[in-house]
Design a binder for these strands. Sequence first.
DNA 1: TATAATAATAGTCAAAGAAAGTCAAAGTTA
DNA 2: TAACTTTGACTTTCTTTGACTATTATTATA
Lengths: 150, 150
Amino acid sequence: MNLSDVIESYIKQMMVETQNEVLEIKRSMLAERFKCVPSQINYVIATRFIPELGFYVESRRGGGGCLRICKVNLEEQEYITNILDKMGSKLSQSVADVYLQNLLGYNIIDSRTVKLIKSAISDKSLENVSILDKDKVRADIFKCMVINCL
Amino acid sequence: MNLSDVIESYIKQMMVETQNEVLEIKRSMLAERFKCVPSQINYVIATRFIPELGFYVESRRGGGGCLRICKVNLEEQEYITNILDKMGSKLSQSVADVYLQNLLGYNIIDSRTVKLIKSAISDKSLENVSILDKDKVRADIFKCMVINCL
DNA sequence: TATAATAATAGTCAAAGAAAGTCAAAGTTA
DNA sequence: TAACTTTGACTTTCTTTGACTATTATTATA
């Protein structure tokens, strides 16, 4: 676990604890707490709190400003259509991981299915696909599997 | 025993000791420990930790990156090793179907897994793979998935 | 009171850093 | 000599950092 992962879990934990789908928190507080530069928080938000997974982040600057991280609780099927809608025609392994870990967290898929999907879209599986097309093929496989099986 | 063999045993030993079928380790640590270049670790992985031998390896680059070596229990799954042995490097959809029906018949995999695998190796999934490589990629995906669904 | 200055936030973007991956050449061994 | 192993230069990916910018609230001033 690198620092970004730690910050991600912390924020998610906070959201669970406050039992609320909106978390208001100061970026500077997070940066302080994790001894990092404030912009690292933006990186975490940008890579992990994404609309595909029902997260919407707003913010206010100036005195008393803060981040507002909102989690929209969707129905199982909505998460899936949401991901399919927003995901585009390319998919990297790391973004796929983010999707799958979250779906697992929401109990929309089980860990065995995660394993199967990850195997199917792994670089090992795609070693004979041109580097230029890998993320495209990965997206195709991911979509097919999700559409047919979830 | 050459160095690659030593590294191979070391990794396997580690997996036994951690009593876990997943080992997370830094490539740079291994290279350091065995005083070799990091890419030698890739060589060991590529030649000894392959799906046919029941291994699945993931990795993450960047800060905090590492290798994740997963072991699947293939020993008592003779039927699968048989199929993988015979399979060769190419696989058509129809031959895949035959294999899958057999695996289903022997209760080695369930029908949902069959569906997942079929989706992953469907022509729809592989529409962006050159016609020349389709059956090759299909074989790669099939191997990875069959091993990982155990 | 209206406006200007200051402080307190957060945002952006690119560079630096920290891993791992690739590939081919050189070396070894059976 | 063919197959396997070792090496290293170069590439790609992901994370961390920091300088600079933008916005908002508060305080001071005309």
